[in-house]
Structures are given as C-alpha cells and as structure tokens.
Amino acid sequence: MNSFSYVRPDEIDVAIDDLSVHHAAKFIAGGTNLLDLMKENVERPARLVDINRLPLQTIDDTAEGGLRLGALVTNADTAYNEQVEKRYPLLSQAILAGASPQLRNMATNGGNLFQRTRCYYFYDTDMPCNKRKPGSGCGAINGYNRIHAILGTSDSCIATHPSDMCVALRALDAVVHVSGRLGERTIPMADFHRLPGNTPQYDNTVQPGELVTAIELPAKGFADHYAYLKLRDRASYAFALVSVAVGLDINNDGTITEARIALGGVAHKPWRRPESEEQLVGQSASKEVFQLVADSIIDGAKGYGHNTFKVELARRAIVRALMQASKLEKIS
C-alpha cells in the first residue's frame, strides 16, 4: 500500500472540490474493493476523500413512483429495505447473492457500481494487464481465463464486471445520479459501464471529479415475475461465473408484455440485448420460446478456452431464470 493523505468532508461540494484539486485523489466509502486493491498495489491513490459523512444515506420515494437509493446506503440496508424488498425483490435478491453479510454491511450502493474486475492478471502486479497498466498486454486472453468474458470482449481485455447488484440495476433500467463541479447529470445504467475496446482502463463513463449521489429505480419493479440466478464455484461467497436477472410482465391471459434479461459474469458490463427481449413480447411463457430468446441473447459469444463453457452455461441459465420468473419452474 502506498502513502496517501486523507480527508473526511461533511459536504458534497467540498468533497467534489477536494477530489478535483488533488492529484490522484479517490473517493472512499465502504472501502471493500478499494482497500483490497490498494493492498495489492493495484490502486495507488495519493489522497483518499472519505465520503461516509456526506448526506447521501437515505432511501426515498421519487415523484415518478420509483425509489431513490442514496449512494452511501449500504448494500445490506438496501437489500433489507422494506420498500426494496416489496417493490424490487429482484434487486434485493441480487444484492444478497453477492459477497458476504459483513461485506454487504460495509459496501455502499455507489461503491458497488465502481467494483473492479476480479481478473487474476489485473490483481497481480507482476503480470501484464491493459486495464491496470495500459499497453502492457493481456495475460488472460491466452492464459487462465475461467472467470472471463464471452461477450463484448476486445483484443485488449476480456475482463468481466463482477457485481451482482449492477446486473439487477441494469435489468431494472436504473439511472445513476452524479454530481460534479459542472453540476449534476444522470447516466442510465445502460451507459454507465462500458465495453473495454482498446481503453480497458476505463470501467465506466463517470468523469474525473464526479461523485455518484444516488441510484434511481423507475416505478416498474417486476415484483410479480422476477428471478436472479447466480451460478458459481461454491454455494456462497463466490463471484458469479454467470448470473441472470430477469423481470417479466405477464398479463392475465398469460401473455408476456415486457421482458428484461440482464447477464452478469459474461462481459465488461452487465449484458443486455433489448432486441432479444422484444422477441418475448406477445408470447406465452414456454421453455421453447425461452430457448430461442437465450440463443439470441448470447449470439456472438466467444470463449477463450477455460471459459468456453460459459457460452452454454449462460444459455441454460437464461432459460432457467425465465422459467423461474414465469413460475413455470420452482426456485429451489
């Protein structure tokens, strides 16, 4: 871990200003990922701006009938929030599928968006990694890549985004509120994380000096038909090999009127293909239909050796999650 200075402002503006004027400064909230990476010398901030005292600690109703999750509310408090549990059980379930109770008690909603990849080569400073050290190469493409991406990859990077929460947020079409010196703006989840291209060092589209203040959930929560399915190498406390968040609207005659399907563990960002989801609209739930949609979502997926199994696993996981969400299959 390198040497750094530390401040703990009480006001949002002060925090943003501080970050902007100091070289290599970073916000710290829960610290669960940043401190981990600092101990590995992967992150080396010269200054930490502790934002835990900023007034971003509440979950509130929005005028549009949705919910606004303060950036500093912990993952645990969010997952167990009565309104979230009732109206957005998909989000609750996704959060509770991630990490451990201790980590969820520390990690914040804002911080979760900024989780960095679990790529072995990114974590090991003796190894090449274009994300950690642009231009140094990618160790994973021809190396050990069991946990790596099969969609949206580039020749520079095949890392995945490791969050569970973000997969649900993507399915729910959440919107991220950020604040910077130039004012406030919103970023739809679809545009928040990015694909690696030839600049894998950038995980997301937040600009330097901007602070995430809240995550807004639109009114529609898919509380009647949803599923979060996570597949991993042990029953708990492991990152997803593949995860699927599904939200369905099904009318009284059993016709699907809207479908959201987001994948985790397969790409540099939570993966969605809206045109595939469209194929479900107007159909009644059936395994055959779901299989066609699954094929369409993972169309173009490419394995790199150790992770090639993910292509088939993702296909099957999508079908299963759709079966569960449509209640054709019980969640076991």
Partner: peptide, 11 residues
C-alpha cells in the same frame, strides 16, 4: 458485523 481488514481505523 464488518471485516475490519477492509476499513481504515481513521474511517
């Protein structure tokens, strides 16, 4: 309950 290894004392 939290993991005390992933928080700074000063925080």
């Amino acid at each position: 309950r939290i993991n005390s290894c992933l928080t700074l004392a000063v925080m």
